[in-house]
Design a binder for these strands. Structure first.
Lengths: 229, 229
DNA sequence: CGCATACTTGACGTCATTCAAACCGTGTGG
DNA sequence: CCACACGGTTTGAATGACGTCAAGTATGCG
């Protein structure tokens, strides 16, 4: 499928937004869009020809699997996010769709050529990479010392912020993008602990579960309190 | 102190290595070198005028302190490493010297100007940023699921590799760059647990402690085995 | 309906933390 | 030279948070 940047939902926020229309058109001829269904993999750890991509809609997870088959989620990717380890000979992690997702895909070589040709693109990707680094370090900080309760509270708080359109405001209600198992894998907990702590957060009036995936914020301050800010 | 790139110990590996001699000289006029003693801070979380820097010699830690004063080490910086959150209005983390360190410091604004002017520099910093991202994700993976023993074994293995000149070979003996407390803060453990597990690793013949900081590898395979990789 | 997948709940065990005390090398002052 | 304090480290015993194992409960789908 060919690219139609004019109708792109993230044309103002994605990395390619820094390009001139002509430059973007030139890139568009190299790329293509692809749709992934929930659970479908973009590429796996070890792939030598792992592509690069900008996420248009949906959500992805970046994860690693250790020796005994446990998955650890390292990052979530939201629309306008960029995927791809540009200077590595092979991918280090799996990238899998959490929900049905549309992506704008480029061969790694094409992106490498583009950052040589369009300095603004290199800067935009640098900016994104630094943001990803910060997000990963925040997750590291969270999983380092905090209790199961704090981790979960912090994650819910993050999700509530991600679900609202303004990044400084919380959505009063949202759907969890992850299963219990995925939350557990992300926070370094077990599925049972996540379930129990969700129950406790509900008991103490911080949240209310609404179906399997729905979360209603009952007391956002309390939630933030428990996350250890 | 003025810059003398010709005698720079990392002139071939640091980000500025991609610049032409003329470009490097131009940057040199904007920067200066600085020496930090062990424990001295380059900048603190929240600083608005946090500088950027390339590490010449020594070692740094990047760390965050949570509400109740616990430090969490998020990354170590080795010579040729680059420090600085380019697009953030203020620093998110503390940066502190682990050993006496020499740095090459630039104002953030100067670096921002330089990456506009020298596209190769932007690409070099992108490469470094992606490498930092990978390192942080590896640490996240480690602290996520693994037992205290695995974390420690993996960290020692990493240090042994960092201490040897070739990155695919292990140094048979090395000095820990961190105190017990810092190791604990890095791995999300307590100082007592680190001490105990070190004792156990010694008892089972994987390593031998040599003074407070020295580590001799007795059985590198066993160490790798236990690190779960 | 039957089966699969995701989630919840309970009882029990384990590993890391916590609290406490002792240890060791080093520098300081008497 | 010794006494002493101090930071970093080691070690022990008790506690508790989270994991493990094992049922049991929705929800959806062929």
């Amino acid at each position: 499928m060919n690219l139609a940047c004019s109708t792109c939902p993230v044309k103002e926020t994605a990395a390619c937004a820094v390009l001139t229309p002509e430059e973007r058109d030139a890139m568009a001829t190299a790329g293509r869009t692809r749709t992934l269904k929930r659970g479908e993999m973009l590429f796996a750890a070890g792939d030598e020809d792992a592509a690069c991509a900008t996420l248009l809609t949906g959500a992805l997870k970046v994860s690693a699997v250790d020796v005994d088959g446990n998955e650890q989620i390292l990052a979530l990717v939201h629309p306008a996010g960029f995927i791809g380890e540009l200077f590595a000979p092979f991918a280090h992690h799996d990238v899998v769709a959490l929900t049905e997702s549309r992506l704008c895909i480029f061969a790694k070589a094409d992106v490498e050529r583009a950052i040589e040709e369009y300095p603004a693109l290199a800067r935009a990707l640098l900016r994104r990479s630094q943001a990803d680094l910060l997000a990963t370090r925040n997750l590291l900080e969270l999983t380092g010392h905090a209790s199961a309760e704090s981790r979960l509270a912090a994650l819910l708080h993050d999700f509530a912020r991600a679900a609202s359109d303004s990044s400084c405001h919380l959505a009063p209600r949202f759907e969890l993008p992850l299963t219990r198992g995925e939350i557990a894998n992300m926070l370094g907990l077990t599925i049972e602990t996540v379930s129990r702590k969700l129950g406790q957060l509900e008991d103490m009036g911080a949240i209310q579960r609404d179906g399997k995936r729905g979360i209603v914020l009952r007391n956002p301050e309390l939630l933030q309190e428990m996350s250890g800010r």
